[in-house]
C-alpha cells in the first residue's frame, strides 16, 4: 500500500528534494529551449506543437518544483526555486540544456529525452510517495503524446531526403554522448529505489534502448555506439550554456528583487 508519508519516514528528505529538483529542472530547462523557437519554426504546425509541448513542460515544472519546496520545508515556492537558484544548484540533465541547433537537432533532442521521460514517468506512477505518483500520472499522459510526436518526426526526417537524413544523423551523433547521464545511478538513487519512491535510473536503460533502436531503424539512422558519456548535470556541474539560460530566465526576478508579478 502506497503511503503519502514515505518521505517523512524512512527516506532522506534531502534525497527526495534533489530528485524532485531534477524532474522539475529537466522540464523547466527543456521548456525554455523550446520557447526559444517561438515564431521561428519551419512550419506553422510546428510552432503550435512546440508551444504546446513547452506549455506542458512548464506546467510540470510548477508541480515538481512546488512539491520540492514543500518537501524541503523552508518556505520556498516553485517560483523561488526556478528563479533564485544559480547554475550549480540546478539538477537537470545536460541534454536538456544543449542549444537548439537546427530544427533537426531540436527534434532529435526531444525524442531522446521524451523516450526517457515517458519511461521514467510511467515508472513513477507507482511511486510509494503518492504526491509523486499523482504528478507522474498527469505528466506521463503528456509525455506519451510528446514521444509519439517526436518519434514520428525522427522517422519522417531520417527517412526523408538525403539532406534531412544527413542532418538527423549528425544531430544524433552529436547528442548521443549526452544520453548516458539519464541512466547513471547517483548515491541517493539506491535509497529512493529501495523505498519505492523512484526507479533506479539504470533500470530504465533497456526499455529506452529498445524504444530508441526501433525508431532509429525505421528512420534509417545508425545508432551510435555507446562511448564516453558526459555527466554532471544531476550534481550541478553543467555546461557553459546553462548560465546563459538562467540569465535570461531569471532576469526580472533578479533585476527587481522582491517585486511580485
Amino acid at each position: 500500500m502506497a503511503s503519502a508519508t514515505a518521505t517523512e519516514a524512512a527516506v532522506d528528505r534531502a534525497a527526495v528534494f534533489e530528485f524532485l529538483l531534477s524532474m522539475g529542472d529537466n522540464a523547466l530547462i527543456l521548456g525554455h529551449r523550446l520557447s526559444e523557437w517561438c515564431g521561428h519554426a519551419p512550419a506553422l504546425e510546428e510552432d503550435i506543437a512546440l508551444a504546446n509541448t513547452a506549455l506542458d513542460l512548464i506546467g510540470q515544472t510548477q508541480l515538481w518544483l512546488g512539491l520540492a519546496g514543500e518537501i524541503e520545508g523552508k518556505g520556498r515556492s516553485a517560483d523561488d526555486l526556478a528563479h533564485h537558484r544559480d547554475a550549480l544548484e540546478f539538477r537537470n540533465l545536460l541534454l536538456t540544456e544543449r542549444p537548439n541547433g537546427d530544427y533537426g537537432k531540436t527534434v532529435m533532442r526531444q525524442f531522446l529525452f521524451d523516450a526517457w521521460h515517458y519511461l521514467c514517468l510511467t515508472a513513477l506512477r507507482d511511486s510509494s510517495e503518492t504526491r509523486i505518483a499523482a504528478i507522474a500520472e498527469k505528466a506521463s499522459k503528456e509525455a506519451s503524446y510528446h514521444l509519439e510526436r517526436s518519434r514520428d518526426l525522427v522517422i519522417r526526417l531520417g527517412d526523408g531526403t538525403a539532406e534531412s537524413h544527413t542532418r538527423m544523423q549528425a544531430a544524433l551523433d552529436d547528442l548521443w554522448p549526452y544520453t548516458g547521464e539519464m541512466f547513471m545511478n547517483e548515491a541517493s538513487d539506491a535509497e529512493l529505489a529501495a523505498a519505492g519512491v523512484a526507479p533506479q535510473p539504470a533500470s530504465l536503460k533497456n526499455g529506452w534502448d529498445a524504444l530508441v533502436a526501433e525508431a532509429l531503424a525505421e528512420a534509417t539512422l545508425k545508432k551510435p555506439v555507446d562511448g564516453y558519456m558526459h555527466k554532471g548535470g544531476k550534481r550541478g556541474v553543467h555546461t557553459e550554456h546553462l548560465g546563459y539560460v538562467l540569465a535570461e530566465l531569471q532576469f526580472l526576478q533578479r533585476a527587481y528583487p522582491g517585486a511580485t508579478w
Binding site: Y103, E163, S164
Partner: peptide
C-alpha cells in the same frame, strides 16, 4: 524561418 525550414518541409513531403 521559411528558408531555414525548407529542408524540413521537403523531407516531410519526400517521406
Amino acid at each position: 524561418a521559411w528558408e531555414d525550414g525548407a529542408w524540413f518541409r521537403d523531407a516531410l513531403t519526400a517521406h
